[in-house]
Design a protein around this nucleic acid. Structure first.
Length: 524
RNA sequence: GGUCCCAUGGUCAAGCGGUUAAGACGUCACCCUCUCACGGUGAAAUCAGGGGUUCGAUUCCCCUUGGGACUACCA
């Protein structure tokens, strides 16, 4: 009867799981995969999983592939797959196999789940043949009502045992329902498992784990004949030879049902690595990073702010492998893929998103950029048409390529506020009283032709003329003899020219601005 | 409510029965210095609580508390 039912349900499916095992040969190396669903722009967590997948494949001497999990057509966002692929490109992340937006590459294609539906059906059909799955004709309303009653009576929720009313439908009843055109979903018969048993496995991150048997006869084929995550995961990761499944902690509990599906199909499950999820602080507690609430933490936004992709990747690595930071200190310039990723160094705490840490990593990375790299990055961020581009680059070049470079740029958008005085529309602040006199005197003296020593001599001269110490030490020794020190003079001038109390070397800035502009601002 | 996970400074964490309890970010102080940044030196700051086990617990076990995840024909 099961065979008959299977043919009734899947008349057009001729292939068997064995056929697919022939098409997709057993893989000889370890493999990891990143399988995001196209529901919008890339999530920081997705990027983090990718970093781990890549690093793990690298450490294991295996491959890492990219698969699109587009089985939820309700949530799917147009172009999201394309955007995902773009984003990976921006981050310089490539995969050994996958989908490039146009076509598949790799021997286990297709890599888009919506194109693998016949494969899922073949496995589903097998399950029906063996009496391990059955069609369910229950309406949404009926299911909702049942759920409500279960909650009310304190019974366990779900579709199982006596609640699984479609499980024991006769062939004729199924035929009748089908004839009436009733929609149906396929459910796994988890009542085949002893509900008091536990499902155990050794998690790569958490160690020995066990969960109670999943009793809910979960849907493995939706009424649109597309599987939800569970069956798709089991089938794809088996066929694609995935040895290590890296996924977020949110999957931990559903591992029982996945393992039960593997068992029902007689398949060997992969090693699971359940990763911590990145959280944000909210009042007293923390919560999972959310796309809606934490827009500023979205990868898209970080990029928009001008964080270098390497900074984001490095930060993610410090989160997911607690060894990485120490390795990085010892190997400050080594490429990241030389780092040996260790499974046992994955933390199991859910970390809080640490923006100051990201900032620190970022400013170190930008600080280490060469002038050429900086130019590329600035143009990449602002485009060719940024006004005063040459001047901006000149300011960025101050102290760059030295053993102790400035590290004032955290993200490229900072340039607009940090160096706003470089732009033509900058308005110099007003000065009054003695300050105005000092500025006037300095304006008289200033010449762009001076070398740095000559320039500084003039600065000292102004200081002396107005009763300020021309060096810090003298002032410190006898503070009462002076109105202030050369630092104060310098500060007055800096403030007038740039509107800021902290800027790179004033001599250099003045040269970049040009004598005319400097004098105009001093006298404004 | 049920199931599961987690628990060392403000944050990320090392530690895996005996340590002066690493390190990084952040904070503060000092030095360097025309300013800022960089750099250097230093400081403050942690084992959630209670029971066991043990000669000895941050480390092992239990309970409490706190936090997190899941509980869909979403992933």
């Amino acid at each position: 009867m099961s065979k008959e039912l299977a043919n009734l349900l899947f008349p057009d499916i001729k292939e068997t799981p064995e056929d697919y095992f022939k098409i997709y040969p057993k893989r000889k190396t370890p493999a990891t995969r990143i399988a995001p669903s196209p529901t919008g722009y890339m999530h920081l967590g997705t990027l983090g999983m990718t970093v781990v997948d890549k690093a793990l494949a690298n450490a294991l001497g295996g491959v890492c592939l990219f698969r699109v999990e587009d089985t939820d057509n309700k949530r799917e966002v147009k172009d999201a797959t394309k955007r995902l692929i773009e984003a990976f490109k921006v981050f310089g992340i490539s995969f050994d196999e996958g989908f490039d937006g146009e076509k598949d590459y790799g021997a286990y294609a297709p890599y888009i789940q919506s194109r693998r539906v016949p494969i899922y059906k073949a496995f589903a059909k097998r399950l029906v043949e063996e009496g391990k799955a059955y069609p369910c004709f229950c309406s949404e309303e009926k299911l909702a009502e049942q759920h409500e009653n279960q909650v009310k009576s304190g019974d366990k929720t779900g579709y199982y045992g006596k609640y699984a009313s479609c499980k024991n439908l006769t062939l004729d009843e199924v035929k009748e329902n089908l004839a009436q055109g009733k929609p149906w979903a396929l459910r796994a018969n988890f009542d085949l498992f002893n509900p008091s048993d536990r499902i155990a496995w050794c998690d790569g991150v958490r160690g020995e784990m066990s969960l109670p048997v999943e009793t809910n006869n979960v849907v493995i084929l939706k009424s649109n004949r597309i599987p939800p995550y569970n069956l798709a995961h089991v089938v794809d990761d088996t066929l694609m030879g995935i040895s290590h499944v890296v996924r977020g902690e949110e999957w931990l509990i559903s591992t029982a049902q996945h393992l039960q599906l593997f068992k029902l199909l007689g398949l060997t499950p992969p090693t699971y690595l359940h990763m911590p999820v990145i959280c944000v602080q909210e009042g007293e507690s923390k919560r999972k990073l959310s796309k809606r609430k934490d827009k500023e933490a979205l990868v898209e936004n970080l990029l928009k702010e001008g964080y270098p992709t390497e900074a984001i990747l490095e930060y993610l690595m410090t989160i997911y492998n607690t060894d990485f930071e120490i390795w990085r200190i010892k190997n400050p310039t080594a490429p990241r893929d030389e780092f040996k990723f260790k499974i046992e160094k994955i933390g199991s705490n859910n970390p809080l998103l640490d923006m100051p840490k990201l900032d620190n990593i970022s400013k170190n990375i930008i600080g280490a950029y060469s002038n050429a790299q900086t130019k590329l990055a600035v143009i990449n961020f602002f485009g060719e048409n940024l006004p005063n581009l040459d001047k901006v680059l000149a300011v960025c070049a101050i102290d760059r390529e030295t053993p102790k470079p400035r590290k004032d740029i955290v993200k490229f958008s900072d340039i607009l506020t940090l160096y706003d005085y470089i732009f033509d529309d900058f308005v110099a602040p007003r000065a009054e009283g003695e300050g105005a006199k000092i500025l006037a005197r300095y304006a008289e003296l200033y010449s762009a032709a001076d070398d740095k020593t000559a320039w500084f001599e003039k600065m000292k001269r102004v200081a002396r003329e107005f009763g300020f110490a021309d060096n810090g030490k003298d002032f410190k020794a006898n503070p009462e003899q002076y109105k202030g020190s050369i630092a104060d003079i310098s500060q007055i001038i800096r403030k007038k020219i740039t509107g800021k109390e902290n800027t790179p070397d004033l001599y250099e800035i003045s040269r970049i601005l040009g004598e005319q502009t400097v004098k105009a601002r001093l006298r404004a």
